[in-house]
């Protein structure tokens, strides 16, 4: 990371599925922006396909998904799969209301980090930096 490129980390933040609770999404977008990231605000009602298209178009380094509707076990892995099918290794972080018992299953499905409700800003930034670092941005 010491010789990391000067380009800031570019993060896509979005909600997949039908749920519209975007308070967390909007706050995370500002935390990341204040923390020096470039934020691509994907907003509401995204699908695995639209997420993948945005990642390609906007050259995104990390994807952050916000979920509050109990559909994370279906939609989290679906986004990871869509990215991998498109040949992308972009890391996916999930935040929101996710029961503890589901965290392991999400990680097994390729989600790199799960942030619970009330995660402080530093933790959010750290998760994004660590995901961007481990994704091998030098390749």
């Amino acid at each position: 990371m010491t010789t990391a490129s000067t380009r800031p980390i570019r993060v896509l933040v979005a909600k997949v599925g039908l749920d519209g609770h975007d308070r967390g999404l909007r706050i995370v977008a500002r935390i990341l922006r204040d923390g020096g990231c470039e934020v691509v605000y994907g907003g509401l009602r995204q699908t695995p396909e639209t997420i993948t298209a945005t990642v390609i178009e906007e050259d995104v380094d990390v994807v952050g998904l916000s979920m509050h509707n109990g559909a994370h076990l279906t939609l989290g892995p679906a986004v990871v799969d869509a990215l991998r099918r498109a040949g992308l290794s972009t890391p996916v972080i999930l935040g929101g209301i996710v029961p503890e018992v589901d965290v392991g299953r999400l990680k097994d499905a390729g989600v790199v980090a799960v942030l619970g409700p009330g995660a402080p800003g530093d933790e959010v930034l750290e998760a994004v930096r660590s995901a961007a670092g481990s994704a091998g941005r030098d390749d």
Partner: peptide, 9 residues
């Protein structure tokens, strides 16, 4: 688009 959300919330 309902996939994964049926009967959830």
């Amino acid at each position: 688009l309902a996939k994964g959300e049926v009967g959830r919330a």
